[in-house]
Design a binder for these strands. Structure first.
Length: 553
RNA sequence: GUCCCCAUCGUCUAGCCAGGCCUAGGACACCACCCUUUCAAGGUGGCGGCACGGGUUCGAAUCCCGUUGGGGACACCA
């Protein structure tokens, strides 16, 4: 039987790195085994579904380098691939359970359930739903519904220990008192996750379920349902979870936490007021207050969160695949890093492409230990990937990055982008390239001079830097060839003649050309700018000194 | 609280299943030095770990038990 696996996200937002790791492992397994990778959208909770989230999810997956054989966009023989379109399938399965008394109707109110839970807690007992002596009939259930009761269907859990087999963890036995008659059909008529997952996995002929370990406790429920419905049990493999560096669970909450911390400090120091913050975020002060103390993340939507972060000058931690993309990470590096988080090839290889990983991916080599998401390691890996990727691929990645964040680099042509990338060799992220070459996208007359750089490099020692520029300018103007090679030769010759160290020429030039002290090697900076633009900038810089303009040199 | 999972450098990990080849290997980070035209990158070296306690064995990082620690799950969310 050929391998079939699935990744089943909920359309609630962007793809989280934890989810990406799960998707990746499923994909790697499928590809290694020559099986099929199915994408299914779990959208049975209508309230939580976010407009456009599905499209974003698919885009994030594709960006990472994953593809799927069946899914909501490409279809397939086991569709539809959105749970919201499979209602009839769930109801058919449900009827079988009801007909054999493996499930029953119930209509307790949330308040009643809450009271029972509280009472159990007071008695220091684990709450278990009290199964009725006699199961209500369909007619009784309908009458209750007509009276406005929230009618659900609960699964009748067998009173015996349940043992599941996990490909990674081995056999795990759960005592029966740990499980109670859980809800499989919600009062809104939609199946719960447990029921939908079991029906879909069976109907889609899923052979292996690779999912995060946080689902381990759900597995006995699923297996029990499979047994009751006469479905085969798929092979389970519960992947270790991904944690933050501090050992906490990695989640979207992290952004809120980071921001809260900074805002709280700013308020304490009286640097900002709550009203200002609320205005910056575009929310009510009252809502922000609640968010600040009450941990109600919903009070601050993604946009508000980002506005507030910008206003406070905070860099939000990356948690979604999209965040890493916007921070200038390469998909090759993220995928590689994620693959190594919980899996290793067994030798010392680390830098591996998805193709290479597919070749050797083996479930047996997946760890059981939770792994911490080490951003510095990812950064290092990104640096290595940037150094080893072919030029064309880097250009495409840089273009993707620039487009994603609306950078002016997106408008430059490929040969120029290629030269920029080449000049910035050694960069860690694409954001570094953008920063280092930013001077290119600034109009010549709008170069912003860094006051400290001007002081240190140009004005110091009675304007030594300016003097160098004044002597260098006519020579540059007379230069016949304006290539990096010719410029480098000129730099060497000029310094030789003047008795200067290269830095004593390069730094003043750099400030004149870019306004700051960070740019590619000086010959590359000059070449990238081109003769006219470079000379114009140097002339303006020299002239500004003569004029004594205060804020420009 | 109950249940479940896990345990090798600060972090990711190799070694564990089939005990000796391990005075435990690699990578990231860190430190030092080198290179240098700024920022990076690069080169060389260094620091650093089998959580603890009992067994089993001639021999344990490897097998067993316990302790401790970490994590996860306990919804009409998925």
């Amino acid at each position: 039987m050929s391998v079939r696996v699935r990744f089943a996200p909920s359309p609630t937002g962007h793809l989280h790195v934890g989810g990406a790791r799960t998707a990746l492992f499923n994909w790697l397994f499928a590809r290694h085994e020559g099986g099929r990778f199915v994408l299914r959208i779990e959208d049975t909770d209508l309230k939580r579904n976010v407009e456009g989230a599905e499209a974003r999810l698919l885009e994030d997956l594709r960006w990472l380098g994953l593809d799927w054989d069946e899914g909501p966009d490409v279809g397939g023989p086991h569709g539809p691939y959105r749970q919201s379109e499979r209602r009839a399938i769930y109801h058919a399965a449900l009827q079988r359970l009801l007909a054999t008394s493996r499930a029953y109707y119930a209509w307790d109110s949330p308040e009643e359930l809450e009271r029972m839970r509280r009472q159990a807690a007071e008695r220091k007992e684990t709450f278990r739903y009290p199964r009725p002596e006699r199961f209500p009939t369909r007619e009784e259930a309908e009458r209750a519904r007509a009276q406005g009761r929230p009618v659900v269907v609960r699964f009748c859990v067998p009173e015996e220990p349940i043992t599941i087999q996990d490909a990674l963890l081995g056999a795990i036995t759960f005592p029966p008192e740990q499980l109670d008659d859980f809800v499989i059909l919600k009062s809104d008529g939609w199946p719960t996750y447990h029921f939908a997952v079991v029906v879909d996995d069976a109907q889609m002929a899923i052979t292996h379920v690779l999912r995060a370990q946080e689902h381990l406790m759900n597995t006995p429920r699923h297996v029990l349902l499979q047994d009751a419905l006469g479905y085969p049990r798929p092979t389970y493999a519960h992947l270790p979870v991904v944690l933050n560096m501090d050992g906490s669970k990695m989640s979207k909450r992290d952004k809120h936490r980071a921001l809260r911390q900074v805002l709280l400090r700013a308020l304490d120091a009286r640097e900002r007021t709550l009203e200002q913050a609320a205005a910056a975020a575009g929310v009510e002060a009252e809502g922000l207050e609640r968010w600040l103390h009450g941990r109600v993340d919903a009070a601050l939507e993604v946009e508000g969160l980002e506005r507030l972060a910008r206003w406070l000058g905070v860099r939000l931690p990356e948690v979604d695949v999209q965040d890493f993309r916007a921070s200038g990470y390469l998909p090759e590096a993220l995928a590689n890093f994620l693959a190594l988080l919980g899996w290793s090839p067994g030798d010392d290889r680390e830098l591996m492409s998805l193709d290479e990983i597919v070749q050797v991916f083996d479930l047996k080599r997946v760890n059981r230990t939770a792994g911490r998401f080490d951003r510095t390691k990812l950064l290092a890996m990104n640096t290595q990937w940037a150094a080893r990727l072919p030029r064309e691929r880097l250009v495409a990645a840089f273009r993707d990055y620039a487009a994603a964040r609306g950078s002016p680099f997106a408008t430059l042509d490929d040969p120029t982008l290629e030269r920029v990338l080449e000049a910035c060799r050694g960069f860690r992220t694409l954001a570094d390239v953008e920063r280092k070459a930013a001077f290119l996208c600034v109009p010549d007359r709008a170069v912003a001079y860094d006051a400290q750089a001007v002081r240190k490099v140009l004005e110091r020692d009675g304007g030594r830097g300016y003097g160098v520029l004044e002597r260098a300018l006519p020579e540059l103007e007379a230069l016949s060839a304006w290539t990096a090679e010719a410029l480098q030769a000129w730099v060497a010759a000029f310094c030789e003649r003047e008795g200067l160290k290269i830095g004593e020429l390069a730094q003043p030039l750099r400030v004149a050309l870019t306004g700051g002290t960070i740019s590619p090697a000086i010959q590359d900076t000059l070449a990238l700018l081109g003769r006219e633009r470079a000379l114009e900038r140097i002339r303006r810089c020299v002239a500004a000194r003569a004029a004594g303009t205060p804020d420009t040199p």
